[in-house]
Amino acid sequence: MKSSNSAKINIIWHRRIGLSVFLLLIFLAISGFALNHSPALKLNKISLSNSWLLSWYGLEKPLIRGFKLDEKWLYENGNNLLYVNKQAVAPCSAPLFSVAESTNILFALCADTLHLLTENGQLLESFSQLDGLPVDARAISSVDNTLYLITDASVLEFNSESLDLKPAAIDPASLNPLTAQLPVPESLEQQLENSGPSISLETVILDLHSGRFFGQFGVLVIDIVGLLICILSITGLLAWINRLRQIKQ
């Protein structure tokens, strides 16, 4: 009689626990499967930049700022890429210091490279610090179709054909470099892909799987679910043993 009562209690609790965790159990199984096969599913290559998700992770989508030159917007997209309007044209270590136009060539000075672009925004070539660009180059300015490179210490004349630099014989006060960035129009910003911070789908699934997505509370819930799964397997085993006993009797 006592044994029959305990078997009933066991079954009741097995059902209750099973009902309470079955949805989470299915989710854990699917997410665990996805994480196990993450490289094959390329989950780490899928970037999510939804503003709600970014704010949940404490990340902010930066305001993209750039320069307007002859109806063209030149800007660094927050992921070290130089854009001309909607087109990514070259790698560009932030910040984009300055832009200028001279002899039908657009110039964009990034932190470590000076890019030369056609009027259409196609990359002609790049002049990096390894090629001789001064480390302290801070701005560029065009006067009478000559490009001047302004460093912390001096002003240099840049030859866009030979990529040579020589000390400039010009009064630095006469230069008017474009260095003040303006916010990129919203219409342009909205059409940008892969701009600003993003989180990989793998990270999100991993955080959901471990409960970290919901902070300490989520971790505690997953811990409890783990404990309940252990109890579920024990009550399941006991139920099976009880059933075997009943059959024997």
Binding site: T118, L123, L124, L130, D131, L163
Partner: peptide
């Protein structure tokens, strides 16, 4: 391939590329 032109140096049938 990025860029419309590539710079090199040469002398007597020998070229150097970066």
């Amino acid at each position: 391939v990025l860029g419309l032109r590539v710079r090199y140096h040469q002398s007597a049938g020998k070229t150097a590329w970066i």
